[in-house]
């Protein structure tokens, strides 16, 4: 019951901060930007002076799946940055301003405190990116051709796991340090390290969460969920839960010092 109260408090707070208005809008802009600009690329190049005579550049026709992947790659770069900034204040900010002490004076368990923040952040970001990617899917169907709604739905369900992992990483650093800026830095750094590690040892780490987007591309092209995607999804969920347990533990330690 206490968890529900904490969760409602978090949701109320992100509503009052207008996060429920601007975060979905930003995710819509991120998802819609590439489909539109790619569609008008030939016109834009023409307007900018065009190619010299004789240049042959294939702008090519894009498959709907490729366009959806463009939106997803925007999410994986700018989206991750946005998640890091959104989450920087949740625990770290409350710790440095003393709000967390105010809350924890009451008999609120550390687990509830951290997991409620984690869940509300996931609902905000997952919901916003679903809205955004739906707008992206709409433009893709409008401009490039049909892509089954169910395939798209499967793709975003798997993609949301990647967001879940990033949120868990951000919450862990929130519980470790008190400076919001350092939370952002460490979150981005560890996501970059994870993708670097996957690039180097990619052949061994076939279930690394970083592979999620390439397996999702397969899913979008073929419409079927591969075993590798299931394995990666499992690893991603397990990793997120582990990070969450670690965050509760480290938050408990830092508060009891």
């Amino acid at each position: 019951m206490q968890w529900v109260t904490m969760f409602q408090k978090e949701m109320m707070e992100s509503w009052r901060n207008k996060k429920w208005i601007w975060v979905p809008i930003v995710f819509i802009i991120l998802a819609v930007m590439d489909p539109i600009s790619t569609y008008y690329l030939p016109e834009i190049i023409q307007a900018a002076g065009g190619f010299p005579d004789g240049t042959v550049i294939e702008l090519g026709d894009y498959a709907p799946a490729e366009i959806i992947m463009m939106s997803l790659s925007q999410y994986s770069t700018l989206g991750v940055l946005l998640i890091a900034f959104l989450s920087m204040g949740t625990v770290a900010g409350e710790k440095s301003s003393g709000v967390s002490e105010l809350i924890l004076v009451k008999p609120v368990s550390y687990t509830n405190y951290i997991t409620a923040k984690w869940a509300s952040l996931f609902v905000l970001i997952g919901g916003s990116s679903a809205i955004g990617l739906f707008a992206g899917w709409y433009y893709t169907v409008l401009l490039y051709g049909n892509l089954a709604f169910t395939t798209w739905l499967k793709a975003i369900l798997f993609y949301s796991l990647w967001l879940l992992l990033v949120i868990s990483v951000a919450i862990l650093f929130n519980s470790l340090v008190t400076k919001p800026g350092i939370v952002v830095f460490l979150t981005i750094l560890s996501v970059m390290l994870l993708s670097l590690l996957t690039q180097v040892f990619g052949h061994i780490l076939t279930w690394s969460p970083v592979h999620l987007s390439s397996y999702i591309q397969e899913l979008l092209l073929t419409g079927t969920v591969s075993d590798k995607l299931f394995g990666t999804a499992f690893v991603t969920i397990a990793l997120s839960i582990m990070l969450l347990i670690l965050s509760v533990y480290s938050f408990q330690r830092s508060e009891n010092r």
């Binding site: 819509i28 802009i29 539109i36 569609y39 008008y40 016109e43 834009i44 023409q46 307007a47 401009l143």
Partner: peptide, 18 residues
């Protein structure tokens, strides 16, 4: 040419949301 070739119905929602 650029302004004539663009279908504003496509672009409008994007501009409105910004």
């Amino acid at each position: 040419d650029l302004f004539q070739n663009i279908n504003w119905l496509i672009l409008a929602p994007f501009l409105v949301i910004q």
